[in-house]
């Protein structure tokens, strides 16, 4: 288990907001905003893997990209190694880019089909270093070895590789500049089951070897249980629960986390026959028009009167275990308004 007492915070995100404006009418006036990320706060310790899970449209990918400042953020602060980069200009950001890299979901779309593998892996080296041609090639070979690609393939093109190998190319590119922090945005979602384990093991090996810190974004809850040290659960632009892995999976506190975990089918027919599923009604509301009060109040099986009025605060309910739910506060009017047991 990860040792938090002696770990430094590498990334600190405070009240991060990212709203995409919605324009309409003849004059294209701004009439609203899609609140893709709406006030999330978390920190990532050096050397750990923070899992970020949620369903499609919950804002987890946007959040990951915003942390790397691939978007202009609306509000909040992003502190990496003690400096707040939330408002930095693109030129200033260029200087810190080598430290923070990204692995994308679809290795087909994130590799340029007209560049060779050595061109793809070498591009960050061209941009950020002044290595000679020979040094660069040596570094490219070193990276290919690290991710388990055959050196002989350096002059091949992405279409000549399988999905799992392409993802290895993407990982080698992310490693090229010796980053400290990597955002992995659904790195295994496009891969076959038998290939997923290969890539996850590779990511774990690289983490040990180079002391990397990961933000691992995924909708695959069983894989996140395997790889993450701590897990944050997002719903409609907000983190609803954040806890170390075992407490989160064994005793989820937020009704959404409980429903999400219970919905994952288990590859065991005997267990399947006995599991009690929490089936959520309806669909996720639109992030352009979130409900009043708690974002989850429209689908929550344990909704109370107060949930429709007041947005619950994200706070620590046990050491290291955070949740945003009225069920875990001591409100005076909590019992009075309860509608479901």
């Amino acid at each position: 288990m990860f040792d938090y007492a002696n770990a430094d915070r590498l990334v600190e995100v405070v009240d991060l907001k990212l709203h995409f404006p919605v324009y309409s009418g003849v004059l294209r006036r701004q009439t609203g905003a899609v609140k893709a990320v709406d006030g999330v706060t978390f920190e990532i310790y050096e050397g750990e893997t923070l899992g970020l899970v949620g369903e499609s449209g919950c804002g987890k990918s946007t959040c990951g990209r915003a942390v790397l400042r691939l978007y202009e953020v609306t509000d909040g602060s992003i502190t990496i190694e003690g400096t707040d980069i939330a408002t930095w200009s693109p030129e200033e950001l260029r200087r810190v880019r080598p430290k923070m890299q990204m692995v994308f979901q679809d290795p087909q779309a994130s590799l340029n089909p007209r560049m060779t593998v050595s061109g793809i892996i070498g591009e960050p080296l061209d941009e950020h270093t002044s290595l000679s041609k020979k040094e660069k090639l040596a570094r490219i070979y070193e990276l290919m070895d690290a991710v388990g690609l055959n050196r002989d393939f350096a002059h091949r093109y992405p279409h000549e590789f399988s999905g799992g190998q392409r993802q290895r190319i993407g990982i080698a590119r992310a490693l090229a500049l010796n980053p400290r922090f990597i955002v992995c945005d659904e790195p295994i979602a496009a891969l076959d089951v038998s290939i997923q384990a290969q890539v996850v093991n590779l990511l774990e090996d690289l983490q040990k070897e180079f002391g990397l810190t990961y933000l691992f974004i995924s909708h695959d809850l069983s894989m996140v249980r395997h790889i993450a040290d701590r897990v944050a659960v997002m719903y409609l632009g907000k983190i609803v629960e954040l806890a170390p892995r075992d407490p989160l999976y064994n005793e989820p506190k937020h009704p959404y986390t409980q429903a999400l975990l219970s919905a994952v089918p288990e590859p065991d027919p005997n267990l399947e026959a006995t599991t009690q599923r929490i089936i959520l009604e309806g669909d996720v509301p639109s992030p352009a028009n979130p409900p009043e009060g708690c974002n989850f109040c429209t689908r929550c099986p344990r909704v109370m009167e107060i949930c429709h009025r007041i947005d619950p605060e994200f706070r620590e309910i046990a050491p290291g275990h955070y949740a945003a739910c009225h069920l875990h506060y001591d409100h005076d009017d909590k019992n009075a308004g309860e509608t479901a047991p």
Partner: peptide, 23 residues
């Protein structure tokens, strides 16, 4: 295939079993 999928309950393996190679 059954071993390569990580479990949601019970013990957590330190390392995932992999099926080497490609289809």
């Amino acid at each position: 295939l059954l071993e390569t999928v990580p479990a949601m309950h019970g013990d957590r393996a330190d390392r995932l079993r992999v099926i080497q190679g490609q289809p």
